[in-house]
Write a protein that binds this DNA or RNA. Structure first.
Lengths: 200, 200
DNA sequence: TAGATTGTTAATCGATTAACAATC
DNA sequence: TAGATTGTTAATCGATTAACAATC
């Protein structure tokens, strides 16, 4: 099984979301229809889908339900994963009550913060002292960390996360993080995105 | 002046942020140093910077302050722009108190929502009735709209935004938006990003 | 069967990297 | 001057699109 290019993987949630908007009355769908709905080329859609183990039938297209299953399988939606937010300010707090991660098999189980005022170990989504990072990672089997701390301490927090054994990091801090091989970082710089949008 | 590729433009905030972390004691910097700090190729850095009007000097590199200015100029940071959030749930609310947009010359001036319970026209960042979208866009000269409404009404809200004359839209809803030519949409799907991170 | 749609191979396009002359 | 670093031209790499035979 050939490795799926990141750029293809990044389109999979879009395919999933679109296919899910189509009701039960849609049993089969062609690459051309998907392409048109998402504004992509139809050959690109077929190339992307060819990485999954869902095969289309000439003349009939793809089975919608089967295709969703194949995409979700690549996205590992059926393997449950736990995530934690480090830094529970406004953004971190908003993420903790964000429900949408579940559809990809991800539960944001808790937050961690240095500020004693925001700690609450008994909440539905508990907020632990940042010093307990190692224990929390072990207790919940955290595989994904979301960094929502202020810019200046992002690298320090990142180092602690890496030391705790977590290998996947999503960061909202606009800082280029240095991580060892094997650790993957994705960046979500809200301000930069808005700035690029404004200037293009 | 040749059009700057989007992928280059998307790296400009990273260059800016890095250059700003260097203090006054750094007067000049080479493409190699920037490349190393950001994990890019040094020729790529020079290619990217060549789109700005900052020219480097062989042997000396680029003047740091001048380069920041040139990057900010392309990113139009010195042209002030107003933005509004449509949908003031947890995420929309967090964005309203997010200060980081200012460094790119963008002010998130207000929110709009359908829910009468969250409205507050007298707050520092007022929240208006969504019905007043046209008036708000005119009153504040809104150039950027951030969609934070639930998935199912994202397209409807998007259509209203387009009708109000706003041509730049950042959306947190995981829905492919149909917009007329000339309107640009950028997508910020938090859950999808975490899912891709988890599966790559 | 005929025709729509797939999967694949070849061509194109754009982005990155390599090579190198120019120059401070 | 000599050497580090730029800017540019050529080569490579990867992603997208075009063409088309296979097939349901």
């Amino acid at each position: 099984m050939k490795k799926i290019p990141l750029i293809t993987l990044e389109r999979y949630p879009d395919y999933c979301n679109y296919l899910l908007t189509l009701g039960e009355e849609c049993e089969r769908i062609s690459s051309g229809a998907i392409a048109k709905a998402l504004g992509l080329g139809e050959v690109l859609v077929r190339k992307d889908l060819a990485y999954t183990d869902c095969v289309g039938k000439p003349r009939l297209g793809y089975n919608r339900v089967e295709l969703i299953g194949a995409l979700r399988s690549v996205l590992k939606c059926d393997v449950h994963k736990n995530a934690a937010v480090i830094g529970v300010g406004k953004i971190g707090h908003a993420l903790l009550s964000y429900e949408r991660f579940e559809k990809y098999g991800i539960t944001l189980v808790c937050g961690l913060d240095e500020n004693p005022d925001v700690l609450d170990e008994n909440a539905a989504k508990p907020i632990y002292d940042a010093k307990k990072l190692n224990d929390v990672v072990k207790k919940y089997d955290i595989e994904l960390a979301v960094i929502c701390v202020p810019d200046f301490c992002a690298q320090t927090v990142c180092d602690e996360i890496v030391a705790s054994g977590v290998k996947r990091i999503l960061t909202f801090a606009p800082t280029n993080l240095k991580v060892p091989d094997g650790v993957i970082v994705r960046y979500m710089d809200l301000a930069a995105n808005l700035a690029v949008l404004a200037s293009c």
